[in-house]
Amino acid sequence: MSSKSKPEETTTPKPIKKVLDEDDEFEDFPAEEWEEAESEVPGTTKPNLWEESWDDDDLSEDFSKQLKEELKKNDSQKSGLEAQR
């Protein structure tokens, strides 16, 4: 708090930090005011940091390929069963 800086021979300043920081509390900011340029998303042009969760048309990725295999296996098993009958 005090702008004067004396070596910390007093015992109080050190423990204070520790307790106020614990259990994920929203922290005090180092400054009270800041310019828009210093904020996380300055200006009106927002970089797109979010992705759509269900537009995934990429069937070449591993998961889709494996799934396709699995479904094929399922079909052939079934036709196998029917052939036995």
């Binding site: 929203f26 900011f29 904020s39 996380e40 927002k46």
Partner: peptide, 11 residues
Amino acid sequence: YQLCHKDAQKN
């Protein structure tokens, strides 16, 4: 999030 200070990592 938008107004948060860019260096306030924890917040």
